[in-house]
């Protein structure tokens, strides 16, 4: 049976096993490789996408359950001219090292910052549980996100992609 997926605003036809993970379909069929494949088990968050605006791990989402859902991947968050506030802060604070965790980190933290525009460091740490970064030690990521409220990167609305 054919299924239409809505990916970054575009309808995308899908034919195939509905139990394949969204992660596999994004990377192998559609070559949207910004969504990273790391643990495949829900633990690391590298494969995070937004489903109807809410971050979920694409490795555990069967594609057959996503008809009618709005799927946003890192490729759909912004374009090169219009980075989101979270992306700008990450760039400004030079937080990205290998980059494997960052697509997922951006999708999780953009949603979190939109809902909690002035978080504490502790709140940021618990929101980041499930987005594992092996390189940075997290503190600079937190500094970057804290800066969003303070130095004019934008209000909660502008934080939304």
């Amino acid at each position: 049976m054919m299924l239409t997926l809505m990916i970054n605003g575009d309808p995308v036809p899908y034919h195939g096993d509905p139990r394949r993970s969204l992660l596999e379909v994004l990377r192998e069929d559609l070559h949207l490789t910004g969504t990273k494949d790391v643990c495949g088990e829900g633990f690391c968050g590298a494969c995070t996408v937004q489903i109807d605006g809410v971050p979920k791990v694409s490795c555990l989402l069967p594609v057959g359950s996503l008809a009618g859902a709005e799927i946003t991947t890192i490729e759909g968050v912004s374009n090169i001219e219009t980075l989101t506030a979270v992306q700008k802060a990450f760039l400004e604070y030079d937080v990205v090292q290998c980059g494997m965790c960052f697509p997922g980190m951006v999708l999780s933290m953009t949603h979190f910052m939109a809902e909690n525009p002035s978080p504490t460091r502790a709140e940021l740490k618990s929101a980041m549980t499930g987005n594992i970064c092996r390189c940075t030690g997290y503190e600079r990521i937190i500094d970057a996100l804290i800066s969003l409220g303070a130095d004019g990167f934008g209000s909660a609305d502008e934080v939304c992609p």
Binding site: G42, F43, G45, T48, V54, P55, K56, V57, L60, L61, S108, F112, S126, A127, T129, G130
Partner: peptide
């Protein structure tokens, strides 16, 4: 339990 993303699923 788990992580924020898993708690939503």
């Amino acid at each position: 339990s788990a992580t924020p993303a898993i708690r939503r699923m």
